[in-house]
C-alpha cells in the first residue's frame, strides 16, 4: 500500500465522517420542518433564510449550556455513556460501499473505506454495541427514570436484534456472500434484493426502527412515563451527543437498507450512463443515486414518527417475539424452498 493509497483512504474517511455529521445536523432541521408540515405549522424560520441556520444555533446552544453532573452519579461512566453512543454510531459507516470505484488517470479510488468479508456481521456487531451507550448512561445517572429507560432500551434491542439477524439470514441465502461490496455489485441495474426478499425487507425496516429507538419504538425515552428516559439527567453537549447519535444511526441504517435491499448505488440504465460519462464522473452519479435512496429512507423514518403513535410496552414485546420472529423463520424456510426448487 503506497502513500497515495493511504492519503486516498484518509481523505475518504474524513469526507464520510463529515458527511454523516452534516446529514445528522440537517436531519434535525428536516425533522422539525417535516413535523411542522404534518401539523400545519411553519417550523423553525428565524435563524437565516427559511431557518436554514437553525442546526448551528442549536449546536451553539448545546455547547454553551451549563454542564451538570449529578452528585451521586458515577462521573466517569456518566461521561462514557454519550461518548460510547456517538462512537458506535460513527464507526458503522466504515464498510458501506458508497459507489463504484472512480478511475482518474492512474489512480483508482474505491468509494468504500474498507471491504471486510464479514461486512454485514460487522454492522450487526456495531448495532449490538450501540445499546451500551444508553445502558451505561442510564445506569450512571443514578436516577430511577433513567434506569428504567436504560433497561427498556436493552430488552428492546435484544428482542429486535433476533428478528433482524433472522431477516439477514434469508438475505444471505439469496446473495451467498457477507461482503457488502459484493452484495452491492450483485444488484447491478434493477436486480435489487427487495424484489427477491420483500418480507425480509419489511422485517429489517421494522427492526431498524426499533434499534434506532425511533417512534413507534421510542419507549426508552417515553416522555409520558419516564420524564426523558435514559437521558433525563443529561444536559449540555452530553445530551446533544445522545440526540445526535440517534440521527447518525438513522442515516447509517438508511444507508445499510439502501445497500442491502434497494440496490445501493445501482439504478436501471447505469451501464449506458457509465459509458457516456466516463469512469471519473459516472460512479459519482451512482453515489448521488445512493444518497437519494438514503434521503428517502430518512424521510420515511420521520414520516412514520409523525404519523404512528408509540406502542405500549407489552405490545412492543408481543410484536417482536410473537409476530416478527415466527415471520422471519417462515421467510427463511420459504427462501430455502425457493432456492432449492425454482431458482
Amino acid at each position: 500500500m503506497g502513500v497515495a493509497d493511504i492519503v486516498i483512504k484518509f481523505v475518504l474517511i474524513v469526507i464520510i465522517f463529515a458527511i454523516s455529521l452534516v446529514i445528522a445536523m440537517y436531519s434535525t432541521y428536516a425533522e422539525r420542518k417535516i413535523a411542522a408540515f404534518f401539523q400545519d405549522r411553519v417550523g423553525p424560520n428565524r435563524a437565516g433564510p427559511w431557518g436554514i441556520l437553525q442546526p448551528l444555533a442549536d449546536g451553539g446552544k448545546m455547547f454553551l449550556k451549563e454542564e451538570i453532573i449529578p452528585t451521586n452519579a458515577s462521573p466517569f461512566l456518566f461521561i462514557a455513556g454519550p461518548s460510547l453512543a456517538i462512537l458506535t454510531a460513527c464507526i458503522g459507516s466504515a464498510v458501506i460501499p458508497w459507489g463504484q470505484q472512480i478511475t482518474i488517470g492512474k489512480y483508482v479510488i474505491p468509494l468504500q473505506v474498507t471491504d471486510i468479508n464479514v461486512g454485514i456481521l460487522y454492522i450487526f456487531g456495531v448495532v449490538s454495541l450501540g445499546v451500551y451507550g444508553v445502558m451505561i448512561g442510564g445506569w450512571a445517572s443514578n436516577n430511577k427514570y433513567s434506569l428504567l429507560g436504560a433497561i427498556r432500551a436493552a430488552s428492546q434491542n435484544i428482542s429486535y436484534e433476533i428478528s433482524m439477524g433472522l431477516s439477514i439470514i434469508a438475505l444471505l441465502m439469496v446473495t451467498g456472500t457477507l461482503s457488502l461490496k459484493e452484495i452491492a455489485e450483485q444488484q447491478h441495474g434493477w436486480h435489487w434484493n427487495v424484489l427477491y426478499q420483500p418480507v425480509g425487507f419489511l422485517l429489517f425496516i421494522i427492526c431498524a426502527f426499533a434499534e434506532t429507538n425511533r417512534t413507534p419504538f421510542d419507549l426508552p425515552e417515553c416522555e409520558t412515563e419516564l420524564v426523558g428516559g435514559y437521558h433525563t439527567e443529561y444536559s449540555s453537549m452530553k445530551l446533544g451527543f445522545y440526540l445526535f447519535a440517534e440521527y447518525i444511526n438513522m442515516f447509517i441504517s438508511s444507508a445499510v437498507m439502501a445497500t442491502l435491499y434497494w440496490g445501493g448505488y445501482n439504478y436501471p440504465g447505469m451501464d449506458w450512463v457509465l459509458a457516456h460519462t466516463g469512469p471519473a464522473i459516472g460512479p459519482l452519479i451512482g453515489t448521488a443515486v445512493m444518497f437519494a435512496k438514503v434521503f428517502l429512507f430518512i424521510f420515511f423514518f420521520m414520516w412514520v414518527r409523525w404519523t404512528i403513535p408509540r406502542f405500549r410496552y407489552d405490545q412492543l414485546m408481543d410484536l417482536g417475539w410473537k409476530i416478527l420472529i415466527p415471520l422471519a423463520i417462515a421467510n427463511i424456510i420459504v427462501t430455502g424452498l425457493w432456492i432449492t426448487f425454482i431458482k
Binding site: 456487531g125 454495541l129 451500551y132
Partner: peptide, 23 residues
C-alpha cells in the same frame, strides 16, 4: 468469523443481559 461472532454474541447480547440483570 469467530471474531465477529464473539463480538455479536458475547459482547453484544450475553453481556448486555448480564448488565441488565445486575442493574
Amino acid at each position: 468469523f469467530l471474531a465477529v461472532v464473539n463480538f455479536i454474541v458475547y459482547m453484544g447480547a450475553i453481556l448486555v443481559l448480564f448488565l441488565y440483570t445486575l442493574m
